[in-house]
Nucleic acid binder design. Sequence first.
DNA 1: CGGAAAGATTGACATATATCAAGAACTCGA
DNA 2: TCGAGTTCTTGATATATGTCAATCTTTCCG
Lengths: 189, 189
Amino acid sequence: MKDLTPIVNLFFNNQFVSEKTKELFIPLLHEFKARKGATFLQEGAICNHIYIVESGLVRQYFYKDNIDVTEYFAWEGQGFVCIESFIERTPSNLIVEALEDSVIYGIEKNELNALAEKHHEIELMHRGLMEQGLVMSQKRMYSMLFETAKERYNNFLKASPFLINRVPSMYIASYLGITPETLSRVKGH
Amino acid sequence: MKDLTPIVNLFFNNQFVSEKTKELFIPLLHEFKARKGATFLQEGAICNHIYIVESGLVRQYFYKDNIDVTEYFAWEGQGFVCIESFIERTPSNLIVEALEDSVIYGIEKNELNALAEKHHEIELMHRGLMEQGLVMSQKRMYSMLFETAKERYNNFLKASPFLINRVPSMYIASYLGITPETLSRVKGH
DNA sequence: CGGAAAGATTGACATATATCAAGAACTCGA
DNA sequence: TCGAGTTCTTGATATATGTCAATCTTTCCG
């Protein structure tokens, strides 16, 4: 059986996890696979899992007035979740597609909650994930507000250089909140 | 002694709270007062509390290249926290000032954590606050990305009409991510 | 109460980015 | 390998919003 320790550590943000907690947590992990191009999560479904990509690359996106807007990329070691749907148990407007063949581990909300009720370390992890998301979300908002298209692209390049060759530019553009035309110009000069 | 039930209910987002939990939680509440114009939280301090405004009105802001940017308003019944500082225990770049004489209740992070460790309902409340913040943050980001200055102003007006006469326009402008000039034009037409 | 300081409005102009359109360069399946 | 369909680039133009400056209005302290 595969050693899932690395996946556990990712969920726990690489903080110390007791053997006991790890033992309890591992059975919650469900493995999913998605082939390149496949839709992993449909629009309108309720997102009941928190996922981490073990290998591959996925993209979260939604339609705003019929145009495709990228919300997030997740690659090896990155987590993702349709956050509003997960928190409020409402149908998601987000779609998740695999940009490459991917192996993904997920934990189910109810199972997580049940275990967390008994084991505080797990409840803390759950809160930790929400906190991480909150800080990231704030930073992204201020990047949209204060940075020019060029600055956002440069920062993206610096933070995730390896994505440039794995993701079509048009998706990067919409992730950065700009048009493909602007991205193209920004790259050129 | 004042009945703090309404404050407790605000922290618990108006969900059911058992008598036991309420009893445990009330001693965590600390009362603070701030006079109009006073700085309630300084820049550079670590924010160790989550606050709720009982009466009055406060503004969170920071300096971006020496210009004053409003992050948030909190009025009667609203919570606030310098979120990044609180989560990461780092010095805050946010300043909190009272725009009116205010009475504020706060809970201290360490005290909250200690109690939450023993009482799951309280831990859940803590996570709930983070989740609320996360959903709000996401919504605000998409408002900045997709809405025009006019739309943002109209939505603000609809959501918080009472703030218009309590807050100088320049603060509303920076909260909406626009200049005072643009806000003035947007209001006029 | 009066005057200085702060805030709000208005105008002229600058600028970043969007939009629309055309053509070039990839990509991928038959 | 060819060719159709994407995707990317480049150009011309439009537009929302920012910047700077002047003036008008409000606030508030001495």
